[in-house]
Design a binder for these strands. Structure first.
Lengths: 366, 366
DNA sequence: TTGAAAGCGATACCAC
DNA sequence: GTGGTATCGCTTTCAA
C-alpha cells in the first residue's frame, strides 16, 4: 500500500529534471532530450512502474477525461445498463471514463447529481432513462456539452440533442412481420400511456394497417401494462371462451414480459404457440426472449447502439468545443454555440426485428 | 458554458483573501475571520453559486472521494446492478462517488481496469461479479483498501475480505419451506457447476433432507443450466408421461428463469401450479418473480444488502487507514496491516424467503 | 484578524 | 539540450 511513484521520483532515479521526464514520456523527447537520457528515463519509469496521476493531470489540463452520466435507474433494469454499457465502451475507447450517478427515479435528485458531477469537473454529461420519456433537463446541465439517451426534452428551445429508438417504425415493422405471415387479425397488448413508448408503437401498428389498406379493430388494441401478469390476463380476455374463428391469430406485445404472460395463458388454454396463436415480444430482453419456450420473436431495442451513438456525438462535441481554457475565445465560442444548436436534433435509432419461434403462419382458414 | 467560479472569485467579490474564503466555507471561520467578513464571504459564495473544485481538492488532500468498482458484467444483468446500487447508496451517503469499470467478463482486462482506477487515485476498490465465483484478485488491487462482493479469492493468503450470499443456508431454507408444506418428493433443478452457487444450494438441499431424516433421491437432483428453456425441458423429463404418484410434488429451481420454464411445462401438460405441482424459484429477480402467473415463491438474493455491507466495511477501512499522507507512518501502517489481515474474513449474507403463490400444500395422498 | 506562501503532481514555456 | 518556474484550485501553516 505504498505510495505510487511520481514524475519526480523518476527524474531523480534517472538523474534528470521533471520536465525531461514529462517530455520523453509524452513522446516529445526527440529533439529535446539526449537519447541517452531518454533511455535512462524510460528505464526508471519502468522500474518504478510509473504512470501519471490523472488527478494532477486533470487539474493541469482543465480536462478530467470523465463523462458524467445521470441515470434514473441503472439498478434494477437491464435496459439502462445496456445503454450505459454501449456509451461506456465508446468512452473507454477514446480514453475517457464514465461516472454514473443514479437518482433512483427521484427527480429531486436530478439537479444535485448534475451538481456533484460538475464539481468533479466532468467534461460532458449524458442523461439516460430506463424507459423512453420526455423530461426537463436540469438547468445546470447546460454548463458542459450534454446529450440525452432514451429521453428527450419536449420544450421547443431546450437545445439538448437526444438519441431515442424509432418506436413508430418498430411498431410498424413488428406488425408487418406478422402480416407477412398472413395474419390480419392482430391484437396489440400495449403497455400503458405513462411513457410515449406504447403510444408510438401503437402508431406504428396503425401505420402498418393503413399501408396494407386494412382497418384497425379498436377492440384489438389494449393498454394493459408492462408485466407478465397483465399480459396473462390480457390474453385471457382475448382468448378464453372465444370461438377459434373469433380469436386474434397473433398477439403483438409491447415487451417480452407481456409476451411471457401471453404464452402462459395460451398453454393454460391448451393453445399451441405459434400453431394456434403467434406471439411476439418487444425489447429482446437479454436471456429472456431468446430462451423462452418457444423462443420469442421480438423487436430488439437498440440499447447499446443508442448509448454508443450518444457517446460518440457527445465526445465529438467535447473535442470540438474550445477546450474551456480561457483562450479569450468569445468569438469562437459564438461559432460553436451555433454548431451545437444546429446539431441539437433528435436522432432516431432503428429497432431490429429478431425472428425466432413464437411466430408462424396464420392458421389455415383464417 | 462559462467557467465555474473559483475560491479566488469569491475572495475578490468579498474583498478578502482566498484563505479567508477557505476557512469560512469550511466552518473554521469563527475565531479566525471577522464576522462581517464571514457574512460577505457567504454572500459572495452564494451569489457566484460557488462550490469547490473536487479535482483540486483531491490533489490537495490526497483523497479523491472516489471508490473504484471493477465489475465483470454490470451491463446485461440486473444482479450486478443491484449490488452496485447498494454499494453506491452507502458511498453517496458518506460523500463518496463510485467509478465503475466493466470488464465485460474479459479477465485480461482486470489488471488494466484496476490500473486505470488507481491512476485516478481511487481511495479504495471493490470487485463485483454477476455470479458467485472464486477468482484471483488482480495484483495491483492490494495498493488500496479492497473488498470483494459476490466473489472470493480461494488462495489461502489472499487477504482480501469478501461478502457473499449464504447459499447453503438459502438452499436449505428453500427446501425447508417446501417441506413445511408437506412436500417430501422435491426435485431440484440446479443450474450447473460452473459457479459454486448451484453446488452450495444443493448442499443446503441435502442438509435439509438430512435434518428431516429423509434420504435424498439422487435422480431428483438435476443440473440442467440456468435458463427458461432448460427449465422447461428439465421439467418435461420429470413430469411428462409420468404417473401422478411418481411425480415430484414440488420442483425447486436454482433461479427464477428456470422456474418460468417449469411453470410453462406444467401448463403445457395441463398441470396446475401450485395445486398439482409446487414450483419455487431463487433470486427474486426484479419484475420477473413477483409478476409471474402464479407469482413465484422464491429465495431472494440479498444483492443490495451485499453491496451495502461491502461498501460499509470498505469505507470503514478507508477511514481507519493512515490517510496515505506521508506521515512517515511505517510503524502505524504495520499495525494497520495486522488489522486488515484479521478482518480479511468472508462475510455471509442471508438470503430471504419470499412466499408468493407458486407453492402450496402437497396434493392429497402424497 | 488577515494575507502571503508553500505544496499536491504534472506540463509547457523560456531562459540558459 | 537542459532544467527552472509558473500554473491549475484549494487548504493550511505562518508571519505580520
Amino acid at each position: 500500500m505504498n505510495r505510487k511513484a511520481t514524475a519526480l521520483d523518476v527524474a531523480k532515479l534517472a538523474g534528470v529534471s521533471r520536465s525531461a521526464v514529462s517530455l520523453v514520456l509524452n513522446g516529445r523527447g526527440n529533439g529535446n532530450v539526449a537519447s541517452s537520457s531518454q533511455q535512462r528515463i524510460r528505464d526508471a519509469a519502468a522500474a518504478l512502474n510509473y504512470s501519471p496521476n490523472r488527478i494532477a493531470l486533470s487539474l493541469r489540463n482543465q480536462q478530467s477525461g470523465v463523462i458524467g452520466i445521470v441515470s434514473d435507474q441503472v439498478v434494477t433494469s437491464p435496459f439502462d445498463g445496456n445503454i450505459i454499457a454501449g456509451a461506456d465502451a465508446v468512452a473507454r475507447s477514446q480514453g475517457f471514463v464514465t461516472l454514473v450517478m443514479d437518482t433512483e427515479s427521484d427527480i429531486t435528485r436530478d439537479e444535485s447529481a448534475v451538481e456533484t458531477l460538475l464539481d468533479r469537473q466532468v467534461d460532458a454529461l449524458m442523461y439516460v432513462t430506463v424507459g423512453l420519456r420526455p423530461l426537463h433537463v436540469p438547468q445546470n446541465m447546460a454548463r458542459v456539452p450534454s446529450i440525452l439517451a432514451n429521453c428527450f426534452d419536449d420544450r421547443p428551445d431546450a437545445g439538448v440533442p437526444a438519441v431515442i429508438p424509432d418506436e413508430v417504425r418498430g411498431g410498424r415493422e413488428a406488425t408487418e412481420h406478422l402480416m407477412s405471415l398472413g395474419h390480419r387479425d392482430i391484437a396489440f397488448l400495449a403497455g400503458d400511456s405513462l411513457t410515449p413508448a406504447a403510444p408510438r408503437r401503437i402508431d406504428g401498428y396503425r401505420t402498418a394497417f393503413a399501408a396494407a389498406g386494412l382497418p384497425v379493430d379498436e377492440d384489438r388494441v389494449r393498454q394493459v401494462g408492462w408485466d407478465t401478469d397483465t399480459g396473462f390476463h390480457g390474453a385471457m380476455k382475448l382468448l378464453d371462451g372465444v370461438q377459434p374463428g373469433n380469436r386474434p391469430t397473433a398477439i403483438l406485445c409491447a415487451n417480452d414480459r407481456l409476451a411471457i404472460g401471453v404464452v402462459l395463458a395460451c398453454y393454460r388454454l391448451g393453445l399451441d404457440v405459434p400453431q394456434d396463436v403467434s406471439v411476439m415480444g418487444y425489447d429482446d430482453e437479454f436471456r429472456i426472449a431468446s430462451t423462452m419456450v418457444p423462443a420469442l420473436t421480438t423487436m430488439a431495442l437498440p440499447l447499446r447502439e443508442m448509448g454508443a451513438e450518444a457517446m460518440t456525438a457527445l465526445l465529438a462535441e467535447v473535442a470540438a468545443s474550445p477546450n474551456e481554457r480561457h483562450d479569450d475565445g468569445a468569438s469562437t465560442s459564438g461559432v460553436n454555440a451555433a454548431e451545437v444548436a444546429s446539431s441539437a436534433a433528435t436522432s432516431m435509432v432503428r429497432c431490429q426485428l429478431v425472428v425466432r419461434n413464437s411466430t408462424g403462419p396464420v392458421p389455415a382458414g383464417r
